[in-house]
Design a protein around this nucleic acid. Structure first.
Lengths: 207, 207
DNA sequence: ATATTAATTGAACGTTCATTCAATATATTT
DNA sequence: AAATATATTGAATGAACGTTCAATTAATAT
């Protein structure tokens, strides 16, 4: 009896608009009132669904980290192929994931993690999950003699260190050519580490 | 004639307190009123010296980046020794620089750089300067046949990619042992890259 | 002493903020 | 139609914000 609950759909709507506004104007400039204005609803409705702004923020972080996780879409195959590993490396060193989430917000909340343990845990969990996924993929390739990597965990970790380190610097780079050249260099380093050839289609302009 | 100007000393004082408060409570929670309260002065005095909060923020960023630059103290020697290179590597992969500035604030303003061009330029300048310094050092070592690195610029860049990438992940790591072990691993990678031995004193527990 | 310059205060401004609470509107049931 | 649960509004709160401006205090010159 009573009215049907719109709770979850409404909550998701609010989080999405929060994300959009924060992406455009920055998290610290995004107030509940602004979000409400964009949605053409009353600010108190947002409080009604999230209790506090802090609660809303945590859910936005979850939203962003969920999307961040999409970088590495773990196909739960038993047997991974060479092209699986190749396309993963290509993905990691491509600009595609910029479409998944806003870098600025990602770093904003990363910075927040230094003061808020909960956020730190969230980030750690995601970063470890990504590393673990890649390590697993390498292990599977090892088992099939596609690769012969000594310590897949260490290798996966090192590849992510290169990814993170590269983007940290390159996010400040405005020259698009320099940007992609550098990225290609680190990608090759990853291929070297794994002792596998790069993908034909993308490295050779033959096709 | 007239009263002696305290402008510069006062400005520096204010920036330092701003830094201390922001370090403790976070930049977004640090208001002019809070800074003034800590200093036991009037908030309007801060505005008097910095015009706007934006102006104050820019100077805090400069302050932090100046300290960041201290990581790599360029000794303008004509001839660099092996130990110069070694101690530089040791410095880069040590926790010492955490004492120079607050990591949380460093990343907070790094995140801000995504929306503010001025800040982006500041950061780019500093990061490039550090890379350039290390490249120069390697070149000098090459000239003396201490090292034989193909492309000093590329090598320096790669070392910093490892540094940045390592800290990005390790800042979330609470386990101190895991933290230092990982760091040591990347440090060794840097030594391998340069084909020089690690410092005796720190790697061997002999002394 | 007096003039001059800068340091510093103190009160006030308008705005925005997150949050509260009671009131109202809208579905969905019996 | 009446009951009920939820959605949504609207007004109000007090606190904090950055900033302004005129007034006052404190040095340093002539």
């Amino acid at each position: 009896m009573g009215r049907k609950s719109l709770k979850e759909t409404r909550r998701q709507e609010i989080i999405k608009v929060f994300y959009q506004v924060a992406k455009k104007e920055g998290y610290e400039n995004t107030s509940i009132a602004k979000i409400a204005k964009v949605m053409d609803i009353n600010p108190s409705l947002i409080i009604h669904y999230f209790e506090t702004k802090e609660g809303l923020t945590y859910e936005l972080i979850d939203h962003i980290l969920d999307r961040y996780l999409l970088i590495y879409t773990v196909k739960n195959k038993e047997k991974a192929s060479l092209s699986d590993l190749q396309s993963t490396i290509e993905m990691l060193f491509s600009k595609k994931w910029n479409l998944l989430f806003d870098d600025g917000l990602f770093y904003t909340f990363y910075a927040l993690a230094f003061r808020e343990k909960k956020i730190k845990q969230k980030y750690k969990l995601i970063l470890d999950s990504l590393r673990k996924g890649l390590a697993l993929l390498i292990e599977q390739c090892n088992a099939q003699c596609i690769t012969n990597v000594n310590d897949p965990k260490v290798a996966a970790d090192f590849i992510f260190v290169m990814v993170d380190g590269a983007y940290f610097y390159l996010s400040l780079e405005n020259d698009k050519k320099a940007y992609s050249e550098r990225l290609a260099y680190y990608k090759q380093k990853a291929y070297d580490l794994l002792c596998i050839p790069p993908t034909k289609a993308l490295s050779d302009p033959v096709c």
